[in-house]
């Protein structure tokens, strides 16, 4: 190990990670969260290959619509759960389970993109502020404050209204408003890393500015952000569904849980399965991410949990 290497490169970090996983694997809620997230992710990835209704998942209407006796004609196509359609069918006669699994794909992809974009912007802003300091720090952090004191989703809504709702605009809009929390965290972390001895050693050894930022400050600032990423996966998935529910997010024919809930509002008195299932899966997905984040936070900071 050279003197300018940061301490993360030794094996200790790996064993610490193993230890964290071992402790958390005894936590029922954490295990529940991980299990649900993994199984929903796997199911939604596998959906196009195993579902008998793949084309419906991509948006094609069912022709002819499934017929179901006893259902009033004005809701033709919306059939209750049966063996062929375990969760029933929806407004265009499509299999609800297939649509939901494809909707989870949309949620996960957008959640991932939003969180990664937000982390990247946040790291850039936070580390720049911490490393340069002075008026740059002041300016960047006050800007962050303005963004923080303003409800994310309203801003995303304005952006979406500006660039028009579609798949890409949703994560541009959410990514653009989601970074302030990450910027704050990254700044705090970068500030504490900046004054460590190994940074001073690296500076003394003549490592340049960018070398210090990319080889030392950046890798050591990312770790604490991972918990926030898990928590924000849930929150951004929820925000995306909300925007889509309002008609400003994903547009049909792309499957989306928020859009499905919106479309189901007219069927509340006639088809209970239609509003219930898409929202239930959305809730489960968000809850699981939040549980993972919550348990890890609790583990890392037991003061919040008491004893």
């Amino acid at each position: 190990m050279r003197i300018t290497d940061s301490p993360r490169s030794d094996a200790w970090g790996f064993f610490r990670l193993l230890h964290i996983i071992r402790v958390l694997s005894r936590d029922k809620l954490f295990v529940f969260g991980v299990t649900v997230v993994l199984s929903l992710a796997l199911l939604s990835i596998a959906a196009p290959y195993v579902s008998p209704y793949t084309s419906q998942g991509y948006g094609e209407a069912a022709v002819p619509p499934p017929s179901c006796p006893g259902v009033p004609t004005e809701v033709a196509g919306v059939c209750p759960p049966s063996l062929l359609h375990p969760l029933g069918t929806e407004i265009l006669g499509r299999d609800l389970l297939t649509r939901i699994l494809f909707g989870i794909r949309t949620s996960l992809i957008i959640g991932l993109f939003v969180v990664i974009t937000a982390t990247a912007i946040g790291l850039f802003v936070g580390i720049t502020a911490a490393y340069i300091g002075g008026w740059v720090d002041e300016l960047l952090m006050r800007t962050t404050d303005v963004f923080l004191s303003f409800p994310h989703v309203i801003l995303a809504l304005v952006i979406l209204a500006t660039i028009g709702p579609n798949f890409y605009s949703v994560f541009i809009a959410l990514g653009a408003v989601w970074w302030p929390t990450f910027a704050r965290l990254a700044r705090g972390q970068a500030l504490s890393v900046k004054s460590q001895n190994y940074i001073l050693a690296a500076q003394a050894a003549g490592v340049g500015r960018f070398g210090i930022i990319f080889k030392h400050i950046l890798p050591n600032s990312i770790a604490p952000l991972t918990v926030q990423m898990a928590l924000d996966m849930g929150a951004s998935i929820l925000a995306e569904a909300g925007l889509s529910f309002l008609g400003l997010g994903i547009r049909p024919p792309t499957a989306d849980l928020g859009v499905m809930v919106f479309e189901s509002t007219n069927f509340i008195t006639t088809a209970w399965w239609y509003p219930v299932f898409p929202g239930l899966f959305l809730f489960l997905l968000v809850l699981s991410f939040n549980l993972i984040g919550d348990r890890v936070t609790q583990y890392l900071d037991p003061r919040l949990a008491g004893k």
């Binding site: 849930g234 909300g242 509002t265 509340i268 898409p278 809730f283 968000v286 809850l287 939040n290 919550d294």
Partner: peptide, 26 residues
Amino acid sequence: MRIFSVSSVALPQFWLGLILQLIFAV
């Protein structure tokens, strides 16, 4: 209470409204 508060954050309000309608009104 902890589970309740984590769940309440994860509940989509627009969906909760529909479910309450389903139970109490329909």
